[in-house]
Amino acid sequence: MASIASGLRHARCASSIAAAPWRSSIVPRPSFQLAIRSITNDVQKPSNTDLEASSAAESVLIPYQGVTHARVLPATPSYFSREPLFNDLYIGISKLLTKYNHLPTVPPSEAPQMPWTKLEEMRAQMGEPIKSSHYAKVMRVAKRLNLIEPSLRPAEVTVALTEFTRDINPFLNMPNPIQIDKFGRAVGVGKRKESTARAFVVEGTGEILVNGKTLSEAFGRVHDRESAVWALTATERLDKYNVWVLVEGGGTTGQAEAITLAVAKALVAHEPALKTALRKAGCITRDPRTVERKKHGHVKARKMPAWVKR
């Protein structure tokens, strides 16, 4: 943090730096000349003729007028630090925080979700060896700025915060909401293992058909029947809806659990408030477990061939 602090000190002391940037006022020279020699040459030239001297005096620029520094002054005092771009970013954002510290904030849970740039990503973008502790401090400031009440947030804060966010916002990548069609049906799709189920849920009296068969014909095991209707049982909606399911692929357990997911999704379309209850019942998250692939040298996924003496 020492480098950032020193950079800040520079900014505080030499306020004129920002006002008169050196680089913009400098005129490119026609050719490379050593500075001292050229002074002597230029001084000798007008002594030849007065006419020439008078015309030359207008055309030739007198160097070093208004120049206070002997060398090129960097655009930013952070130039001398280890991470100049990052430093500048921090200075800018800290200034914003001092400026808008008085604005009301919202609790972190209500602040807009931002796809913050990760440390590795920021290192790659800036090409600077950013320390993780420095990154954490900067992100704290950025997250504090994000807490400003969204309706009162100044435009410059929004602009400044874009520097800390990724280009792609994964939070905007939402699935299309399930619509209830004109017949009152909501179609949910669920998967488990190799099975895929489509459930058409409609308000009714608790009749369930799986591939045109009743639950007892479709599933011989009572446990499978129970897991197929678990989304409705857990929310006590079994006698309120009729379900018509198409399911294919996989075995009986997979099919039954695919139906659970499909019915839950369609049920959420009917009653969005049930989503939390369904999540607690384990009907929202897809179970990612599938068959582990076989490996070479193994008999199955993990099994090794039996040891043979020679």
Partner: peptide, 11 residues
């Protein structure tokens, strides 16, 4: 209703 549905529409 639950047992009726689990029993394949009241079998």
């Amino acid at each position: 209703a639950e047992k009726w549905a689990l029993g394949g529409h009241g079998i």
